[in-house]
Design a protein around this nucleic acid. Structure first.
Lengths: 260, 260
DNA sequence: CAAGTTCTGTGCGACAACGAACATACCCCC
DNA sequence: GGGGGTATGTTCGTTGTCGCACAGAACTTG
């Protein structure tokens, strides 16, 4: 569970280059509206905002923000996945939230705050649309639909973080691993992704051996399959029963979107 | 750590009536501007908003919202303290955040969301200013300073929840208890308050005996003193060294308020 | 004062996770 | 095809917390 070397880039991640061995599925038409926040905008709003957006390729292990960093860009993931991490000291780090194509990285900007409180780590490589902080500020100010979409997302993220907090306290490593795999799968929209036990250990806040134990148990039960940094979900249904109820709780919130 | 009976009101709380045996200190001039969000407004803004505000007495154990409840009022605590709780099932509940005079209860309203995602439980009785949801919506829409103050607070709350999530994962009951007492003390601005081990157990997500053990150790070390639901902090300085670093991390964030 | 309630303290076996160290297995590249 | 790095698996003693049960202590009420 420790990060031996706390470098700004990937800790305990499999080497970045060999990533292409398992080409990632691409989402839909790969348009930037594959991001659900952007997709919530009207055609005109969307066309306008598009001129401020720039597609970027984000790669496994890349760090978008460190805590207290000034936010230079906000990111709208289309088919990548970003983890939000909080540290309690130099060694212990925990994922508190996860952002995929349903949200935006750089949430504080929607609250008029220019610095990040967490580390944002690219956990699944892929593409995102990004915008500079200055352009975002200008756009956000008078784009009400964007405001609505982002405020709604902020609320959901808050709920996700809260649930994760309780989950990390009460549920054992195996249930949490199952939940984490399901959440990840939902966001990258694939049943297969690359990540090592070491990496998972940081996400779940347990030791690597804890992940090994939990993962090998799930594998024994034929719910997942993995080898050398490549994990595949075999039986989604049963994996969900192995996961803690927190998975459903958050997912229902996001799907039914209690606004009003 | 279990809630035996999951009634909408106080679980494991000391009986409500005998509260007056330890009269609570009152904050400053007791004006509604004792709330820091309201205090951030200009004189004119403040005078105007005051007409929409209504002072209420909140009492120990009262539940302001349940998850999925429609938010009827927002509350600006002046000298009371409200806990935000998240459940993973019927029995296990955990505090994920704490709102005192530095914030507002009903944060989703600032995001245009009308339902609460968490339970809001009055943990330290006292007074608050409240406003109906409808009036708040109207006021919030065109009161930019209020927006700024609340967005800033939302960001800080998010940071607090994130830190709490990591803290609950990594730190033992004793450090967390120390941190919790300090955070509470900061918000009620007293060194003495009423709460039982049973109540603390729910806040920290441990069993009652876990609290008893941690508390008696802190008492043995003369950092705190307690008996029958009445806790007093004896040595703030040393209590802080007994607490996990999460206390300082969050406090520094709130004090120096990284905006910009 | 006696009875009942609430709060706190202790003891028990069980277990998951801890930190550390070592053992295999796999892959890539020279 | 051997060597070096990376990923996974196993073991060991320790610790914090678990669930449960019961005993004492303090306060409230009749």
């Amino acid at each position: 569970m420790l990060l031996q070397n706390i470098s700004p880039v990937a800790n305990g991640l499999p080497a970045a280059p060999p990533r292409q061995k398992h080409p990632r599925l691409r989402v839909g038409n790969q348009s930037s509206a594959a991001n659900l926040v952007l997709a919530a905008l009207s055609r005109e709003e969307y066309q306008r905002i598009l001129t401020s957006l720039e597609p970027v390729e984000l790669s496994y292990g890349q760090v978008l923000y460190e805590p207290k960093d000034r936010i230079r860009h906000v990111y709208f993931p289309t088919d990548c996945l970003v983890s939000l991490l909080t540290a309690v000291d130099n060694k212990r780090i925990l994922e508190v939230g996860m952002v995929g194509n349903e949200g935006m990285v750089g949430m504080p900007m929607a609250l008029g705050i220019g610095v990040s409180a967490v580390r944002a780590l690219v956990q699944g490589g892929g593409t995102a649309m990004r915008m500079t902080a200055a352009l975002f500020r200008a756009e956000f100010r008078n784009n009400m639909p964007l405001q609505r979409a982002l405020f709604r997302y902020t609320h959901l993220l808050m709920a996700q973080v809260s649930q994760t907090a309780a989950c990390n306290r009460f549920h054992d490593a195996e249930s949490r691993l199952a939940r984490w795999l399901l959440m990840t799968s939902d966001r990258v929209q694939t049943d297969e992704f690359r990540l090592t036990h070491e990496f998972l250990a940081h996400m779940l806040g347990v030791r690597r051996v804890g992940v090994t134990k939990a993962a090998s148990d799930l594998q024994r039960r034929k719910l997942i399959d993995y080898s050398r940094g490549n994990i595949r979900i075999l039986d989604r249904k049963r994996l969900e029963t192995a996961a803690c109820p927190c998975y459903r709780i958050v997912k229902n919130l996001q799907d039914h979107a209690q606004i009003a």
